[in-house]
């Protein structure tokens, strides 16, 4: 049996103050999958990701990354993950080159490997003319590229992208889609959260929908989009945003 890239079992996260952000959440991502993680704001997507990556503590439950316990063997588990977070968590006075190089350093990469990989990513993401500017001087789209480079510097086996195309222009979005598809074809497992349903539909092989801290729907993309109304209708029904009779398409209407 293949070890899942990510296995979450009965995860519960309660914040100080008593807010239950994730409640008994279980899911698995197969190696090589392109996994779409959907849900409304505040549903628990980012909290789940933060628990997986160590930004948040786990109240109860287990998380395994390629079989490695993300709490007990957190250092080994973190080597396997690259995170592009939703919020820019960067020293605004540092340059993109420094940000990428430092992240490589935290992951134990040698100076030569960091230099090669940083140059490669700067070139790949069109950052050559901006590599030595301060992060705070960059446009939103360029900032997003830097964050992606930082997530990729150590060539992680599991790439977690929390709304990676929020606020970026159409060109970058399409370029990023191509790049992510290439990475996935090469065997990298990707977990993607997004509010753009067409993005998830275009890229992902498996989709899970979370609402109020629990997985309310999970399946392959193909089976979900075949349902009446397609992904959007399934999403609205699953999250309780729209009752079944409203979301159901009119007779003869295409998806």
């Amino acid at each position: 049996m293949t070890t899942p890239a990510l296995s979450i079992s009965h995860l519960r996260k309660v914040y100080r103050g008593g807010l239950v952000a994730v409640d008994d959440l279980s899911m698995e991502i197969a190696p090589g999958d392109f996994f779409g993680f959907l849900g409304p704001n505040g549903a628990g997507k980012s909290t789940t990701i933060h628990c997986v990556t160590g930004i948040a503590t786990v109240t109860s439950g287990t998380i395994r990354v390629f079989g490695v316990d993300a709490v007990k063997d957190y250092r080994e588990a973190r080597r396997l993950i690259g995170l592009s977070p939703q919020m820019f968590n960067v020293d605004p006075f540092a340059t993109p080159r420094q940000i990428i190089d430092w992240m490589g350093g935290y992951f134990g990469m040698t100076a030569a490997d960091r230099k090669r990989r940083t140059d490669e990513l700067i070139e790949r993401f069109g950052l050559r003319d901006h590599a030595d500017k301060r992060f705070r001087e960059l446009s939103g789209g360029l900032m997003r590229r830097v964050i992606l480079c930082r997530a990729l510097v150590h060539d992680p086996k599991l790439l977690i992208l929390d709304e990676p195309t929020a606020g970026v222009d159409v060109e970058l979005r399409r370029d990023l889609w191509r790049y992510l598809q290439e990475l996935n074809r090469d065997g990298k497992t990707i977990l993607l959260t997004s509010h753009y349903l067409e993005e998830v539909e275009r890229l992902c092989k498996t989709i899970a929908i979370i609402a109020r801290g629990q997985i309310v729907r999970q399946g392959t993309k193909d089976e979900i989009v075949r349902e009446p109304g397609g992904l959007e209708a399934v999403y609205l029904r699953a999250t309780g945003a729209e009752p079944d009779h409203v979301a159901a398409p009119a007779a003869g209407a295409g998806r």
Binding site: T53, G54, I55, Y74, R75, E76, R78, R79, I81, L83, P85, M87, F88, N89, V90, D91, P92, W102, M103, Y106, F107, G108, R150
Partner: peptide
């Protein structure tokens, strides 16, 4: 500025 998260997600 939240860049402490860079070290939190690292090994």
């Amino acid at each position: 500025l939240r860049y402490i998260e860079e070290t939190l997600v690292a090994p």
